[in-house]
């Protein structure tokens, strides 16, 4: 399968990453190599096989609908951001 320059740019956009022209070249080449490698799964016959998404023997676990004590306080969490004002996190304009 051919991966074009615009495909690489689209993937970068989906990933919220901006690539320099050099990165489009270098990472683009790497991605083509990786996709070529993982495409060998084509050869494996998986007809009538159900997918596995997790290997934990998952069962639904119920708990009481109560508010549990949290490990970090609101103040501790707000202290982690670079820009805080009036108990809110400041970011540049949205629009």
């Amino acid at each position: 399968m051919e991966i074009k320059r615009e495909d690489i740019l689209h993937l970068a956009d989906l990933s919220e990453i901006r690539l320099s022209d050099t990165e489009v070249e270098s990472l683009g080449g790497d991605l083509r190599d990786i996709i070529k490698y993982i495409s060998q799964l084509d050869k494996l016959d998986t007809s009538d096989v159900e997918p596995t998404y997790q290997v934990f023997e998952m069962e639904n676990i119920w708990r009481d609908d109560t508010v549990l004590e949290q490990d970090a306080t609101r103040e501790q969490l707000l202290a982690l951001t670079k820009n805080e004002k009036d108990n809110q996190i400041k970011v540049p304009k949205v629009l």
Partner: peptide, 9 residues
Amino acid sequence: LKAAKARTL
């Protein structure tokens, strides 16, 4: 999806 099926195998 193919990989998830391979995982089953």
